[in-house]
């Protein structure tokens, strides 16, 4: 599963971090950082990734 972050839409609300802290983090500047290489979600983390996609309040995350 791939997760695409639309950085133009991301406003840094941090709900992805709340529901999937192993995959997403807001850095000290409030910018979203993904904790995986490229867009490929590590095996076993697909459910967390989907939770983050659903939680994003502004549709900045897309699963592919």
């Amino acid at each position: 599963m791939d997760i695409h972050v639309d950085y133009a839409r991301c406003e840094g609300h941090g709900l992805c971090e709340e529901v999937a802290s192993s995959l997403f983090r807001l850095d000290d500047e409030g910018e979203l950082v993904t904790l995986f290489d490229g867009e490929r979600v590590p095996e076993g983390y697909e459910d967390d990734a989907m939770r983050a996609v659903r939680a994003c309040p502004v549709s900045a995350l897309r699963a592919q």
Partner: peptide, 12 residues
């Protein structure tokens, strides 16, 4: 935190 009281999506 899954409430839709702020709306949700691009018009959230």
């Amino acid at each position: 935190n899954t409430h839709v009281g702020f709306g949700h999506g691009i018009h959230g």
